[in-house]
Amino acid sequence: MAARVDHLVTSGTFALDGGEWDVDNNVWIVGDDTEAVVIDAAHDAAAIEAALGGRTLRAIICTHAHNDHIDAAPALADATGAPILLHADDLPLWKQTHPHRTPDAELADGQVLEIAGTRLEVLHTPGHAPGAVCLYAPELATVFSGDTLFQGGPGATGRSFSHFPTIVDSIRDRLLALPAETTVRTGHGDSTTIGAEAPHLDEWIARGH
């Protein structure tokens, strides 16, 4: 049986470059009745642990290291014993939030993680952050896009460590190459599909987020 995807929304604050914004984050739990991984441990470790329902947590996977996606990761790791996985290019951002706790292992482009018999392929998609990754689960026809791609366009690139031409390249080359029916489960807001977003690439470039 393929893994299932559970969805939790947590609320807190995104802080960067001296500003703060109230945000709601999507936390994705992928697994079966006995084991799971968490994608983006945002804001509320206790709520995420409760949503696991006693399942063994195999890993806490960070799509990137903006504080709103990782602020609960150390507490969740301490509570469950699960390792925290992050792409090395996002360590400078990670250290802004957790200067005294480093991730346990690095994510690398092309790496394949497996949970409950389901593969999660790591796609390095820099732009929103240098070490941003998406996780493609072909058996689930799903990609977990973090803040790289949303319903309606790319993630924000107006703050430090981000770059608009780079995120456009990442989306064009890595995400829009996926099957059109692939569900895009985002870091904030509603899900979409690759097919729904692909026709709008030129519009995004013209807008120049």
Rank of each mutant, 00 (worst) to 15 (best):
H7M: 07
H7E: 15
H7D: 06
H7A: 06
H7Y: 04
H7N: 06
L8W: 05
L8T: 13
V9I: 15
T10D: 02
T10N: 05
S11P: 00
S11I: 00
G12N: 08
G12A: 10
T13F: 08
T13R: 12
F14Y: 15
F14R: 10
A15D: 13
A15F: 00
L16Q: 13
D17T: 11
D17Y: 00
G18C: 12
G18N: 01
G18I: 10
G18H: 11
D22P: 06
V23G: 03
V23Y: 02
D24H: 09
D24W: 00
D24T: 11
N25I: 02
N25M: 13
N26H: 08
N26G: 12
N26M: 03
N26W: 00
V27E: 00
V27F: 07
V27Y: 06
V27Q: 11
W28P: 04
W28Q: 05
I29K: 05
I29M: 13
V30D: 03
V30Y: 06
V30I: 15
V30N: 02
G31V: 04
G31R: 02
G31K: 02
D32V: 04
D33L: 14
D33T: 15
D33H: 14
T34N: 06
E35T: 08
E35R: 12
E35H: 03
E35C: 04
E35G: 05
A36M: 07
A36L: 13
A36I: 07
V37K: 14
V37H: 10
V37G: 08
V37F: 00
V37N: 07
V37Q: 07
V38C: 14
I39M: 05
I39A: 01
I39Y: 04
I39W: 06
D40E: 13
D40L: 04
D40I: 03
A41M: 07
A42C: 15
A42Y: 11
A42L: 14
A42I: 14
H43C: 10
H43I: 14
